[in-house]
């Protein structure tokens, strides 16, 4: 089997909020992995890091055998850290200047956020020293090296993402929503793009809605259009960020049916979901994420029926009772 996605010790923090702690896992081609866990456990952040909407601080990402985000140990001599308050909800952003020598030349490097495999010791006014968890100053830190934006944009096309709240373009009809990205990004001919879009719409069972505006169709239909839109760019891995959380149980069914259909056709999928029973049915493997760590990772039925960790048991009990 071909390894299509591999993540090694991924770390992400928003300011002092350490959201992802050393996440590592890999995925085979054609596999379906469900990520479950309580809210605030880092599920969405993990997915956003994999689709490059967020940048991780340390750890590497391989997609299709290609190291897209390498990780590198760098000497650290932090001089200053700036604390910058961000708009509501985003917390604080840490900037720090790292001074180091390369081939006898002094160099400065700015990191927008500090790698997170460490805690911070408040020294005096606005100066922080990165330390490890026991409080010793660090001499080396692991840093993710992201490629330039235009390179990253190309690589990011290997990942498709379906959002919780659809994010369809409200001013475009369904078919225009679908053909926009192929035409702009892949320079596809309009007629070719329309044929492709019609094919994908048929796949999600919405051929009759191609000229409707997003405000004229139901939530379940919107989500199916969003899935078709992601499929139009033929991503290698299709990610779902709680695709049914904004829908009522009846509409949830039609979206889940589409996802099951995609599984039949062999699409590699990574699904963040609260629908445990659906995950048990559809996924090959399940990742249970809690407090930013992978608590359990294994065969879907085994993890959900017989969890080994105490925390996972509690979670399953609460979910299945509700």
């Amino acid at each position: 089997m071909e390894k299509i996605l591999e993540i090694k010790s991924l770390n992400k923090s928003f300011g002092l909020n350490h959201v992802l702690k050393d996440i590592s896992f890999s995925m085979q081609k054609g596999e379906v992995i469900a990520i479950i866990g309580s809210s605030g456990g880092g599920k969405s952040t993990l997915l956003r890091c994999l689709t490059f909407l967020e940048k991780a601080q340390s750890g590497s990402i391989w997609i299709g055998g290609e190291e897209i985000v390498p990780s590198e140990l760098q000497p650290v001599k932090p001089k200053f850290m700036f604390v910058q308050k961000l708009p509501c909800g985003s917390g604080k952003k840490f900037k720090f200047v790292n001074k180091y020598e390369e081939n006898g030349k002094k160099k400065f490097k700015f990191f927008t956020t500090v790698p997170v495999d460490m805690t911070y010791k408040y020294k005096f006014f606005k100066k922080y020293i990165p330390t490890d968890e026991s409080g010793n100053p660090l001499s080396e830190i692991n840093v993710s090296i992201y490629p330039k934006d235009n390179v990253l944009r190309e690589k990011a096309l290997k990942m498709g993402l379906v959002f919780q709240d659809f994010n369809l373009f409200p001013h475009k009809t369904v078919i225009e929503n679908l053909i926009m990205a192929p035409m702009l990004v892949k320079n596809m001919d309009k007629q070719v793009a329309i044929n492709l879009a019609k094919e994908q719409l048929a796949k999600v069972g919405l051929s009759d809605k191609e000229n409707a505006y997003p405000c004229e169709i139901s939530g379940g239909q919107k989500q199916r259009v969003a899935i078709a839109r992601a499929l139009c760019l033929s991503p290698e891995i299709l990610c779902f960020d709680e695709p049914t959380s904004a829908l009522d149980p009846e509409l949830t069914g039609e979206v889940l049916k589409v996802i099951s259909g995609l599984r039949e056709s062999g699409t590699t999928m990574l699904i963040v979901t609260h629908e445990i029973m659906f995950a048990r049915e559809i996924a090959d493997k399940v990742i249970f994420l809690d407090g930013g760590k992978i608590l359990e990772y294994g065969d879907a039925k085994a993890v959900i029926d017989n969890p080994t960790e105490q925390r996972t048991k509690e979670f399953m009990d609460k979910i299945l009772k509700a």
Partner: peptide
């Protein structure tokens, strides 16, 4: 204009300028 619109554009591989002209401007 909701942030999600720009995120959708980014995931679909559009440049920031393309996203602004094609998606943000009409809204």
């Amino acid at each position: 204009v909701p942030k999600g619109q720009y995120e959708a554009c980014q995931v679909l591989g559009m440049k920031k300028s393309q996203a602004f002209v094609n998606v943000a401007m009409p809204q």
